[in-house]
């Protein structure tokens, strides 16, 4: 209908479908990578937790910032640019724990067992999105009001109530 009114072609339905197909294909590829590439890894580790770094805050010495106070003077790297002179971080954690995770390829790594479930992220994303939208629809029942609900466009003068010399 808009075609005639606007004198412009509307979005081509076939074009949309073509885009959607590409999209589905991509989704399939990435799920496939997960299953095919990482799958065996997941199966072999099933039931075992991967290395789980303990929270720095579990250690009271780290959790309590007061203990970090002596470090605060040089808290942020002021004088030095070079990495070896990096001052201590107040929370005390360093980048060491990251070394084994930086490689491209190999086995799938993650912090939690559930991350190793094939297509976990795709499913989580799908579910989360659906939940989000449906929850938002419910939310709308409560918070949606008229566009001029607050009456912000009214002239400002209405806000002067008091007689002068009041009180």
């Amino acid at each position: 209908m808009s075609e005639h009114e606007h004198g412009l072609p509307s979005v081509d339905a076939r074009g949309v479908k073509r885009v959607l197909w590409i999209f589905y294909a991509a989704l399939a590829v990435f799920i496939a990578i997960d299953v095919v590439w990482f799958g065996p890894d997941w199966l072999s580790n099933l039931g075992q937790d991967t290395h789980h770094v303990e929270s720095a805050y579990a250690d009271p010495a780290h959790a309590d910032p007061a203990h970090a106070a002596p470090d605060t003077e040089e808290h942020w790297p002021n004088a030095e640019d070079s990495p070896q002179d990096q001052p201590q971080h107040p929370v005390g954690h360093t980048a060491e724990t990251r070394t084994d995770q930086a490689s491209f390829g190999g086995h799938k790594h993650g912090h939690y067992a559930f991350e190793k479930v094939p297509a976990f992220h795709a499913l989580y994303g799908f579910a989360g999105f659906v939940f989000l939208v449906l929850a938002a629809r419910v939310l709308r029942l409560f918070v949606m009001k008229d566009e001029d609900y607050y009456g912000d466009d009214a002239p400002l003068d209405a806000e002067q109530h008091a007689e002068d010399g009041h009180a």
């Binding site: 002067q160 109530h161 008091a162 002068d164 010399g165 009041h166 009180a167």
Partner: peptide, 15 residues
């Protein structure tokens, strides 16, 4: 506080 609140509501500039 009270005088500030009163001031909020006055339209006369000098008042």
């Amino acid at each position: 506080l009270i005088s500030s609140i009163v001031a909020l509501r006055l339209d006369n500039f000098k008042a």
